[in-house]
Design a protein around this nucleic acid. Structure first.
Length: 418
DNA sequence: TCTGGGGTCCTAGGACCC
DNA sequence: TCTGGGGTCCTAGGACCC
């Protein structure tokens, strides 16, 4: 019999920070977004103090944070990515079929004979992950992905593991489970369902009018309904190459000059190009945008445009040139720009790339990009880069409370006093 | 002063083809 | 007054996820 487990890390970003700061055990911790702008992750101790509203502006809660002596971190994605990889590797010891769904959660296919104690299996997963990585997780086990998500949510209230396999126990759980909390049912869909008097997951499960569900929630909604009934519609997926990718950031302060924006967009284009090369792909078009700060009063501006390439490319220099071409088109003097970004579209694997009639080699600047990648992999990102990205990068994101690269930089390893 | 970043999928409608 | 029928591809927009 096949089951699916959803394993997700508790307060993932905060828990990553706490691994290396044992004195913070049972203490309130908050992690901030890029630019230290908003609070995005909270430990349960922080939530108990009344924090926990996702994306709340940091400046609005700063006083309360100090008053309650909450420890604050800037986000340290290098660290979080590395811890994430370690957690996923432990899960692979339990099953060959692991779908990494996000940085902090994964679906695990479990092939278990009758009589296997799923509860005990879930507990073993928790223990192993905590022992090997130091990360607390919750485990939900059921028959479909959607049900495993439900079980996972309930696991937080229990012992960290929740198994929903028997029809009767599934129904009991669904009866007190709001539709809005179902994976895939967002705010909009929940309103539509409430309007036809469907408030709980159980009412959704037994609502027998597929045409109506199709009309209200499209095919997506119908599949969720089937999954609630124990019918597998969403199988575990192998990781696929990204179909779109990009890089965007808020700036540390408002940018007014074109030259600053040129630097920033060059950096975003470089980062995006790097992602593309990491997955052995090329893109045929790109777009870029710059915009003003929507939280400020006064005239707003959002400028966006795109360029196409006659042949697929993942060349940093070509993408930087593309970003600059777009900037010439969309830049309007006089505005203070708060954010910008670069998006790469029409991505295909390099070896399936259609060549154009006039270019003999699709890997433009191939050797140059290759050697740049090798150097940066060995000596750290940004060791070598295009001068267009600037040296000082004054526009860069503010990270006043960032922790060390404990696991990815020799110079920042944890020191232990004996 | 200060307000995140990066994705996926589905559908409707327009452009275009014969 | 009356103006074909059948198809594909692309894009924008909506909704959702973490």
């Amino acid at each position: 019999m096949k089951y699916v487990a959803l394993v997700d890390c508790n307060s993932f970003y905060c828990s990553c920070e706490k691994i290396f700061r044992p004195e913070l055990r049972n203490r309130p911790v908050i992690v901030l977004s890029n630019n230290d702008g908003a609070a995005i992750a909270f430990t349960k101790e922080a939530k108990a103090l009344g924090f926990g509203q996702m994306c709340e502006a940091f400046f609005k809660i700063r006083d309360r944070v100090q008053k309650h002596n909450v420890t604050v971190f800037s986000s340290n994605y290098t660290l979080y990515d590395d811890i994430s990889k370690r957690v996923m590797n432990v899960l692979r010891e339990f099953s060959p079929h692991v779908e990494v769904y996000s940085v902090d959660e994964a679906f695990v296919e479990i092939d278990a004979g009758p009589g296997v104690d799923l509860e005990a299996l879930g507990q073993r997963m928790r223990l192993e992950i905590f022992r090997k990585v130091g990360m607390p997780v919750g485990v939900g086990i059921s028959r479909t992905k959607v049900l495993a998500k439900v079980a996972n949510k309930l696991s937080k209230k229990h012992t960290g593991v929740c198994v929903l396999v028997e029809e009767a126990e599934i129904d009991r759980a669904l009866r007190s489970f709001p539709v809005r909390d179902i994976w895939g049912v967002g705010a909009r869909s929940a309103v539509k369902l409430n309007l036809i008097d469907i408030k709980t997951a159980y009412e959704f499960k037994v609502f027998d009018n597929p045409t109506m569900i199709q009309k209200l929630l499209t095919k997506v909604g119908r599949e969720i309904q089937d999954e609630l009934r124990g019918i597998n519609c969403l199988s575990l997926e192998a990781p696929e190459d990204k179909k779109n990718t990009g890089n965007s950031r808020s700036f540390g302060y408002d940018l007014f000059t074109k030259s600053e924006l040129r630097e920033a967009l060059a950096q975003f284009a470089s980062n995006a190009a790097q992602k593309l090369r990491n997955q052995q792909s090329v893109c045929f078009s790109m777009s870029a945008f710059i915009c003003t700060n929507p939280f400020k009063s006064g005239p707003q501006y959002f400028g966006e445009a795109g360029v196409r390439f006659t042949s697929g490319t993942s060349d940093t220099l070509k993408l930087i040139a593309g970003a600059h071409e777009i900037l010439d088109e969309i830049y309007r003097p006089g505005h203070g720009y708060k954010k910008g970004g670069v998006l790469l579209n029409h991505i295909v694997p390099k070896n399936e790339c259609q060549m154009d009639l006039f270019t003999s080699d699709p890997s433009d600047n191939g050797p140059l990009n290759q050697v740049v990648d090798v150097i940066n992999r060995k000596f750290g990102p940004h060791t070598i880069k295009s001068a267009a990205c600037g040296i000082q990068q004054e526009w860069k994101t503010i990270r006043a409370h960032v922790s060390r690269q404990y696991t990815t930089e020799w110079s920042e390893l944890l020191e232990v006093e004996l």
